[in-house]
């Protein structure tokens, strides 16, 4: 077990190193000149060259990359070109908002997705089941920004129940969390449905029924705890999915997390911030996947890791 974890950790570190290299490379070769952005339109060629030298952007690619890596291993993500601040501090100040939204969103996804999946499984092949599965298809086919705008229009503009965006109170959190919950529920409900159907076919459920237990006890006490096992591992993967979409959701809801930070940085070609957010997101994705793999043997002792 310890050996397995160690091996996976090393693998994860290598993957992150690869992500850093590829991102750095892409930002290096792309036809965007951050120095012009910093210097402003009226800057002379001389000023531009001076800034380039100061930032070390005149150095060859590998020199720049290894200098970045040198900082990275010490937790230094460099300085933002335009906001006069350390990238690590900028990210640290934004990360709590993103994490809060993530926890709330995943909670909503589970609440909506699992109840849909269980209901569909118990009503298998009937109208309710078909309607719920069609709904789950719609949720995975809907772009985040459309549903976000729809929720804002109905619940903020028309009904005025929630603020139109922003951050700070519980009421600000509700709409983005429920929006993400609806959007992410589709995968959970489909997984939960098929897992539940498989479990309901097993011998121990037949035994439980034969003992004369009530339907509620069979479903909640016997079937659910077993059917939910594969879902728990999905949460780890879901963290990655969440991190992939934060730019859109945070910009629509005006949520001051790292997605919004990245979006602002992309528009101004503030490369150190783009690098930093990419790495933090990639780390979250890798850790989420690792968590998904590690959690399985704990909840299902039949599976052993090698």
């Amino acid at each position: 077990m310890a050996g397995y974890i160690l091996r996976r950790l090393i693998q994860s570190a290598l993957i992150l190193l690869g992500v850093a290299f590829v991102t750095f490379f892409l930002l290096f070769v792309l036809p965007a000149d951050p120095v012009r952005q910093i210097a402003g339109r009226s800057a002379t060629a001389e000023t531009v060259e001076n800034i380039r030298q100061q930032l070390g952007l005149d150095k060859p690619f590998l020199v720049q990359f290894f200098r970045y890596l040198g900082g990275l291993v010490q937790g230094d993500l460099g300085r933002s070109y335009l906001q006069k601040s350390e990238v690590s501090l900028l990210i640290a100040s934004r990360l709590p908002a993103t994490l809060l939204l993530m926890v709330a969103a995943i909670f909503c996804e589970l609440a909506i997705g699992l109840s849909m999946g269980i209901t569909a499984a118990l009503r298998r092949d009937r109208f309710t089941d078909q309607a719920l599965m069609l709904t789950s298809f719609v949720t995975v086919s809907a772009p985040q920004f459309v549903v976000s705008l729809l929720m804002l229009y109905v619940f903020a503009v028309k009904l005025g129940w929630f603020p139109i965006g922003g951050y700070g109170t519980f009421r600000h959190l509700v709409l983005p969390a429920i929006t993400l919950g609806i959007l992410g529920s589709g995968w959970y409900s489909r997984m939960m449905r098929s897992s539940m159907i498989d479990v309901m076919r097993t011998d121990y459920i037949r035994t439980a029924r034969a003992k004369g237990l009530t339907r509620a006890r069979v479903v909640l006490g016997h079937a659910l705890p077993n059917a939910i096992l594969p879902i728990i591992a999905m949460i780890g993967i879901d963290i990655g999915v969440f991190m992939g979409g934060i730019v859109v959701v945070e910009s629509v809801f005006g949520w001051p997390g790292i997605g919004q930070l990245a979006w602002q940085a992309i528009q101004r070609i503030d490369i150190p911030i783009i690098m930093g957010v990419t790495l933090v997101s990639a780390a979250a994705i890798v850790l989420g996947n690792l968590l998904a793999d590690l959690i399985v043997p704990f909840i299902d002792p039949r599976i052993r890791l090698r």
């Binding site: 993957i15 992150l16 690869g18 992500v19 590829v22 991102t23 892409l26 930002l27 792309l30 036809p31 965007a32 990655g240 991190m243 992939g244 979409g245 730019v247 859109v248 990245a262 979006w263 992309i266 528009q267 070609i269 783009i274 957010v277 990419t278 997101s281 990639a282 994705i285 890798v286 996947n289």
Partner: peptide, 23 residues
């Protein structure tokens, strides 16, 4: 396949936005 693993760890949308914004 290691390269594919690496791509799996990429925040794809972020990468796409970044590439599209720069070109």
């Amino acid at each position: 396949m290691r390269f594919t693993d690496l791509m799996m760890a990429f925040p794809a949308l972020l990468l796409a936005i970044c590439l599209a914004a720069i070109f």
